[in-house]
Design a protein around this nucleic acid. Structure first.
Lengths: 269, 269
DNA sequence: CGCGGAGTTGAACGCATTCAAGTCTTGTGG
DNA sequence: CCACAAGACTTGAATGCGTTCAACTCCGCG
């Protein structure tokens, strides 16, 4: 349940025939080590990427060099389609774990546009779903308190992996460190650590060694205030998820010391 | 300097001819009162919007009904292009101030796709720039402290308005309340109020009655840690801005009590 | 005149940060 | 095989930014 083929990645968008055509313009796989920068902001680009394996992260840094991840790409994602239209990126792209990507020359995309307009439009659609996911990140870091932010992020990763057939509902490999989680959720690593202990003690989930084990799925969704409408999943997957998440919860639910109180954040000025 | 024509909105993307073609498929203008919801999440849509006047905001709410704005649309924006591909939105869209929009039926967009593929592609490009702006919001609320968040947001609005020829560098009409600012920047209205007093006392800017007056432009950019690469402006505009922003600053710069300290946030669980 | 929305100010609380000192793990080289 | 270093994780104590709660002013409007 960990290998991905292209036609499984976008079942509700690409037909097998589509997938074959897209695959045909991809170059040979490249392997990148963890923590390697793939794309720097403002460097002209002539090819886009398809992520076959591993995790990539987009980020910006503040004046003191502290990072904020803007999005995470998982296997099956088309990583750089915007670059085809815009010519360069405004943020950095880095391999969070070891990653395997396939390059797609913009020339080839351009030919695809003329010869397969329908397929080209589907690529647009994919990039719009990606944007929708990115927008949701603003909600997460802007409105949710710490524990909800982390739980919410776990929910997103779970469903995105699940929709690709890369995991089940009891847990999955999430190759990030607590520092990464902090830079994803907009807080400090120390605080992430304390929140993980909380979630563990409450029997919701345990995260260690880059592996998330989910102990109480409904509570995880509840704590994270999670809704997945923004993922634009196919109806069938959606139904399955709903079934699993609304299962009767066991035990009381802790939402932290206070319901109406917050603070968050991370960064200096 | 406050009226906008379509061909001035996207000078580096649309030719006058393009603008005319796009305008030709737009329906008559509709006026919406402030605080009216334009689009509800998950409702099927058959037309997209072009914003001619006023401000629109996308938002999501948490479980207690507290809002987080995900993006703001200003005059000249194509508001709902994603809906053409995805069929519905995952968030709500509301008129923040009185607004005038023009509807564009998806049928017409579809015809445009077949008859004017180049123009169609330009629409994609516009939607990608929008996404880029949305992503930057994650950085703002995720990594910047309160005063930087507000200052940073003001900078974005200034440049986006300026790029459309809708304002100059000394200030502009920004029809939002302090509550709106709080829901944009991910904090409480009370805190916004205190931050505005700070920025005013430091001679950086004053915001009142939906009007922003900029007293010290370089310090505003400095305080907001602002960079505008993500707006993908044309080189000429970019140069003008750089010239204005890097002007010698007068007086010392206050970055708040501490440089390495934060917290942010707003929301409950 | 009174109502409601928007803005302002004060005091107390608390979530998250900062600083600091640990432990545990992993990989490397002697 | 063990010593050592570097990174990831853990834990404690103190500080503070931002929140919460509350009261008050200002202004436009019916």
């Amino acid at each position: 349940m960990t290998e991905l083929t292209l036609d499984r990645a976008w079942p509700c968008i690409f037909t097998p025939c589509d997938a074959q055509k897209v695959a045909s313009i991809q170059l040979a796989p490249e392997t990148w080590a963890a923590r390697q920068p793939l794309v720097h902001a403002s460097i002209p680009l002539s090819s886009s990427l398809y992520l076959e394996h591993g995790l990539l992260g987009r980020y910006r840094t503040d004046r003191l060099g502290r990072r904020q991840f803007l999005s995470l790409q998982i296997p099956g994602d088309y990583v750089d389609l915007p670059a085809y239209m815009l010519g360069h990126l405004d943020h950095n792209l880095e391999a969070i774990s070891e990653a395997v990507v396939r390059r797609t020359p913009h020339d080839a995309v351009h030919m695809l546009r003329q010869q397969e307009p329908d397929l080209f439009q589907k690529l647009w659609k994919i990039s719009l779903i990606d944007s929708s996911i990115d927008r949701y990140w603003t909600f997460r870091v802007g409105r949710l308190v710490g524990r909800a932010r982390v739980a919410n992020f776990f929910c997103e990763m779970l469903l995105r992996f699940y929709a690709r057939g890369l995991c089940d509902f009891d847990g999955f490999r999430l190759q990030v460190t607590q520092v990464d989680l902090a830079e994803i959720c907009g807080m400090t690593p120390v605080h992430v650590n304390r929140l993980m202990a909380e979630l563990r003690d409450e029997g919701i989930c345990t995260f260690s060694q880059g592996h998330l084990r989910i102990t109480n799925l409904p509570d995880l969704f509840q704590t994270g205030q999670y809704s997945w409408d923004y993922l634009y999943l196919d109806p069938e997957t959606d139904r399955e998820i709903r079934k699993r998440v609304t299962a009767t919860r066991r035990g009381p639910l802790h939402n932290g010391p206070s319901l109406l109180s917050a603070t968050k954040g991370a960064g200096p000025i």
